[in-house]
Amino acid sequence: MTDAKVWLDGSLVDWDDAHVHVSAHGLHYGIGFFEGIRCHGTPQGPALFRLTDHLRRLARSAATYMVSLPYTVDDLAEGCRAVIRANGLTDSYLRPIVFLGPGPNPLTAPYRVAIIASPNGPLVGGSKDHGVKAKVSSFQRMPSHVLPPAAKATGQYLNSYLALQEALTSGYDEAIMLNTEGHVTDGYAHNIFVVRDGELRTPTLASGALEGVVRDTVLTIAGEDGIPTRTDVLVRTDLYHADECFLTGTAAGIVPVLNVDGRTVGSGKVGPVTQQLAARYNDLTTGGNTAHADWRELVG
Rank of each mutant, 00 (worst) to 15 (best):
D75C: 09
G101D: 11
C80S: 01
D53W: 03
A114G: 10
A114K: 01
L58I: 10
R81H: 03
A86P: 06
H54M: 10
T64N: 14
D74Q: 15
P70H: 05
R112I: 05
P102D: 08
R56W: 13
N87M: 06
I97M: 11
S92N: 01
F99Y: 13
A114R: 00
A63T: 10
L69S: 10
R60A: 14
L69H: 09
T64V: 15
R56C: 13
C80G: 01
T90F: 03
L69V: 09
A62R: 04
I97L: 11
A82P: 04
Y71A: 07
D74T: 12
G88P: 12
L89G: 00
I115Q: 00
I116M: 11
A114E: 06
V67Y: 09
N87L: 04
Y111D: 07
L94M: 08
R56N: 13
G103I: 02
L100I: 00
I116G: 02
M66Q: 15
Y93V: 04
F99N: 00
T72F: 03
D91W: 02
D75K: 07
T108C: 02
F99D: 01
L94F: 06
G88T: 09
Y65K: 13
D75L: 11
L55C: 06
R112E: 12
M66A: 13
N87Q: 05
M66T: 14
I115M: 01
G101V: 01
T72E: 08
L69T: 11
L55K: 05
L76I: 15
L100H: 01
R112P: 01
R95D: 01
A63Y: 06
L69I: 08
G103T: 06
A77F: 07
G88D: 09
A82T: 10
A77V: 04
I97Q: 05
A59N: 10
Y111G: 02
E78P: 05
L107K: 13
S61M: 09
G101S: 06
A59K: 13
R60D: 13
M66S: 15
D53P: 02
N105M: 07
V98S: 02
S92R: 06
A77E: 09
Y111M: 04
P104D: 13
A62Y: 05
L76F: 08
R56P: 05
R95C: 05
T72M: 03
R57S: 07
R81N: 03
N105C: 12
P102H: 04
D74R: 08
P70S: 08
T72W: 02
V67W: 12
A86V: 04
V73E: 14
S61P: 11
G79A: 15
T108W: 00
V83H: 01
A77T: 04
A59I: 07
T108I: 02
L89Y: 12
P106T: 07
G103H: 06
L76H: 08
T64W: 11
R81G: 03
